[in-house]
Design a binder for these strands. Structure first.
Lengths: 209, 209
DNA sequence: TGAATTATCTGACAGATCGTCAGATAATTC
DNA sequence: GAATTATCTGACGATCTGTCAGATAATTCA
C-alpha cells in the first residue's frame, strides 16, 4: 500500500507531494460521501470541488471525471477482498462447513454495506461495457470464482452426476451473494432468514450437500 | 393497453392528441436507443431532443427529466412479464419440470437482452433509494416471487426439513436470474453451461429436488 | 373558404456545469 | 530572502438545464 502510494501522480504524470496527496485524498473521500448520500445522479464535479473547498480546476488536476474518481475508489474497495478468500479453504465438512458458508454470506453483506454505492456504479459501468470497470470487477470476482470452483472440485460437487458446470455454478453463487448483499437492507424478509437461506444454497451448491 | 394510452397527458395534465402522442413516442424510442448505444452516462435531454429533431423545450413538455423517460420505459418493460408467470404453474415434476426451469432461465436472458439497458438503470435507481423505481421493481418482482413461493409450497420444498425460508429462497433465485441474464453476454463460460447450471439450481431449489 | 380557436412547438434566456488554460499563490530550496 | 518548484484558481467558451412567452400548425365551424 505505501509502496503503491509513492507512485500516485498528477494527470500529467508528475508525482505528487504531501500537500497534493492530501488534497487528492480529500477528493476521494468527499466523493465517497456524496455518492452514499445522493447517489450517482446528484454527483457533479462542481459539488465535489465545493465540498473540499477547492475550485473545479483543482479537481481536474487529479481526476479526469467523476467516473475516474469512482474507478479509483472501486479499486480501493478491492483491497478488502482477500480476507474473504480464506473462508473457502478446507473442505467445508458438516457444521463447520455450514458456518463457513454463513460467514461468506455475512462477509458480503458487510462488504456491500460499506462499499455498496461504489459497487453499484462499478457494476452498472461494467454492464454498460466500460472496460476499465469490467477489468476492476473481474479482478474482484476471479479469485472468488476460482476459490469456489476449487472447493467444489475438492468436494466432488458438480461432478459427472450433476448437470452443473463448476464455473457457472460459481457465477450463480456470486450473483446471489452480490444481489442479496445489495438488497438485504430493503427487502421485506428477516435478515436471519435471508442469511440462513443464502448460506444453505451456497453450502449445498459448493459441497454437493 | 389502448385504454391506458387514452389517459396519457402533458406534464400540465392536458390529454394528448395524435400528433403529440407521436412525438412522445418518438422521445421514448429515441431514449431507448441512445441508452442502449451510449449507456446512462451519455444520455442528455439535449441529445434526446436533437435525435427527434425537436428542441429541449419540446422534451420538457412531455417529461420532467431523462429519469422520467426511463421510468416510463421501465414501466412498459413490465408489460412483457406476465408470460413468465405461466411457466411456474403446475408442480414441475421430472423432465417436464426441468424443461420449465430451463424455459424460465432463457426467458430471463431474452428479457434482459431486450430491456437490459433500462433494467440496469431501474435497479441502480431503486438500490439508491428512489421510491418510484423501487415501486416499479417491486411490481415486476412480486408476482414472480409469489409464483416461486407457491411452487415451493406445492412441492413441499423449503419445508421443515430444510433451513430455507421460501421467500428468501425465491429472492435468491431471482437474484441469480437477474444477474446471470445481465452477465451472460459477457461472461467467459458457454451459454449452454450457464443455462443448464442455472436451470438446475432453480429446479432443485423450487422443487426440493 | 377562411377566420377563430385550439394544439403543439421553439427561440431565447438565466443559471449552472464542464474542461482548460495562463497566471496567482504557497511551499521549498539554496 | 531570492529563486525555484509545487499547487491552486479565476476566468473563459462551449454546453446543458429548465422555463417562459410567443410563433407555428392543425382543427373547428360559420
Amino acid at each position: 500500500m505505501s509502496a503503491s502510494k509513492q507512485r500516485i501522480a498528477d494527470l500529467t504524470g508528475r508525482p505528487l507531494g504531501a500537500r497534493a496527496l492530501e488534497k487528492r485524498r480529500q477528493i476521494l473521500d468527499a466523493t465517497r460521501g456524496l455518492l452514499a448520500k445522493r447517489g450517482l445522479r446528484g454527483l457533479r464535479v462542481a459539488d465535489i470541488a465545493r465540498s473540499v473547498d477547492s475550485s473545479p480546476a483543482t479537481f481536474y488536476q487529479y481526476f479526469s471525471s467523476v467516473e475516474d474518481v469512482v474507478l479509483h475508489l472501486a479499486a480501493e474497495a478491492n483491497e478488502d477482498l482477500p480476507a474473504l478468500l480464506e473462508l473457502f479453504q478446507g473442505t467445508w465438512r458438516g457444521k463447520e462447513g455450514q458456518r463457513r458458508a454463513r460467514d461468506v454470506v455475512t462477509f458480503f453483506m458487510d462488504y456491500w454495506d460499506v462499499h455498496g454505492p461504489l459497487l453499484r456504479i462499478r457494476n452498472l459501468a461494467a454492464d454498460e461495457g466500460d472496460t476499465r470497470f469490467m477489468d476492476l470487477r473481474r479482478a474482484a470476482m476471479e479469485p472468488i470464482l476460482l476459490a469456489m470452483v476449487s472447493l467444489m472440485q475438492r468436494n466432488g460437487a458438480a461432478g459427472k452426476d450433476s448437470l452443473m458446470a463448476p464455473r457457472s455454478a460459481a457465477l450463480a453463487m456470486s450473483a446471489i451473494l452480490d444481489r442479496m448483499a445489495a438488497y438485504h437492507q430493503v427487502v421485506e424478509v428477516s435478515q436471519e432468514d435471508l442469511v440462513t437461506t443464502c448460506a444453505q444454497i451456497l453450502f449445498r451448491t459448493l459441497t454437493g450437500k
